[in-house]
């Protein structure tokens, strides 16, 4: 399962990381090197075991539907890069460059 340069570019896009042309070959090689060490896992028979996601097989503890949230010792504007009228402000998404009232809904990807 060799990782190609295209693969690395694809996953970098997914992870919102910009990689320079200079970094790509080296990262491709490193990822292949690391993943090469993982191939040993493919030969292990795991059919008999239940995959363990961690602890808590008895089930998760729930919280009651009340109570105050954990308070913020400082206001949102004190740690946010940009706010206006209480909103967090970000550059507009390319697909909404000509936003009008019709497009105002939040769409997931």
């Amino acid at each position: 399962m060799a990782v190609t340069r295209d693969d690395v570019e694809h996953i970098a896009r997914l992870a919102r990381l910009a990689l320079s042309d200079a970094e790509l070959p080296q990262l491709t090689e490193q990822l292949n090197g690391i993943l090469g060490h993982m191939d040993v896992l493919q030969r292990v028979d795991t059919r008999a075991v239940l995959p363990a996601a961690g602890v808590g097989d008895a089930g998760m503890r729930l919280r009651a539907d009340d109570g105050p949230p954990t308070p913020l010792a400082r206001g949102r504007a004190s740690f946010a890069p940009e706010t206006r009228d209480g909103f967090f402000i970000v550059p507009r998404l390319a697909t909404h460059e000509n936003a009008s009232a019709d497009d105002a809904g939040g769409a997931d990807e």
Partner: peptide, 28 residues
Amino acid sequence: VRRILLGTYVLSAGYYDAYYKQAQGVRA
């Protein structure tokens, strides 16, 4: 950056079963 790329790769479509799921099995 290296680890985010590695992690994104092993979770991405087509590789999840071979890497992440298999790793959870071996973890068990």
